[in-house]
């Protein structure tokens, strides 16, 4: 199995430990992972701002970097969804289509491709899950509360394999944190209020660590936690699944 790692731009720059945890976790599970070093970004920040027409170069670069692999694994639901839904290349339509079909968010790769049933991880803490919207409602990583349908959770199942981990339930299971890309600055007042309310739900229910499949949501929540000088910390799910 020929697997490439796609580390989103902001994870690369601000949260290298998440990239490292993802790589180590996959290696522990016996996967040979390559990291094409000329990668940058999926183009989502531009596209979600209405500038999808500018993402052509970014898309071509992505295709050049990742075409040769069987699977592309990414520790971000949002970036994965963007590639799956919007990566196009008029000069190379089939290559783009191929990329769209073989990119996986980390927890769905572990669940659906590797069929992981046990992990050696241990993390003796109270942990609460922030359901990142794009992973949940876009990639269907877990069931959303809007639908009258049976519950399931791919990241939740993986967390239940971690020794010592106690999963905390929230009052609002899957409300958006308010990050939303450029929304977080363009709509500062609502974005911040959404984040403050989200954090309050986690804190109130006694969590020690907020985890998620998306670092962008966690970056936003961390900004609020640190401003409040809270003891509650954030950890990407890869760091927990790779812990101990």
């Amino acid at each position: 199995m020929n697997v490439a790692l796609f580390i989103p731009c902001y994870v690369d720059q601000f949260y290298p430990q998440v990239g490292i945890a993802t790589l180590e976790l996959l290696e522990k599970l016996g996967v040979t992972v390559s990291y094409p070093i000329k990668q940058t970004c999926c183009g989502q920040p531009m596209a979600n701002s209405g500038f999808e027409h500018l993402t052509g170069d970014c898309n071509s670069l992505f295709i050049n970097n990742f075409s040769a692999f069987d699977y592309i694994v990414c520790p971000s639901g949002s970036c994965t969804l963007h590639v799956k839904e919007h990566l196009h290349d008029d000069k190379n339509k089939s290559a783009a289509k191929d990329i769209r079909s073989k990119i996986y968010e980390l927890t769905e790769f572990l669940t659906d491709v590797l069929h992981v049933t046990s992990l050696s991880a241990s993390f003796s803490h109270k942990v609460s899950m922030h359901q990142a919207c794009h992973g949940q409602r876009g990639l269907h990583l877990s069931q959303m509360t809007e639908l009258v349908a049976p519950p399931y959770s791919k990241p939740g199942r993986l967390l239940s394999m971690v020794k010592g981990l106690e999963l905390v339930t929230l009052d609002r299971a899957d409300e958006c944190c308010g990050f939303g890309g450029t929304f977080c600055v363009a709509e500062e007042a609502v974005s911040a209020k959404m984040g403050i309310d989200r954090v309050a739900d986690h804190v109130k229910n006694g969590t020690e660590y907020i985890t998620s499949v998306d670092m962008s949501c966690l970056m936003h929540l961390e900004g609020i936690l640190r401003r409040q000088k809270s003891n509650v910390q954030i950890k990407h799910i890869a760091e927990i699944l790779n812990a101990g």
Partner: peptide
């Protein structure tokens, strides 16, 4: 900076993942 009004900025690491790799 509208980010900073209610949120701290992320703490920047010395090296990026790319550099580490």
């Amino acid at each position: 900076d509208p980010w900073y009004k209610h949120r701290e900025l992320p703490q920047a690491p010395k090296a990026s993942f790319n550099e580490w790799y």
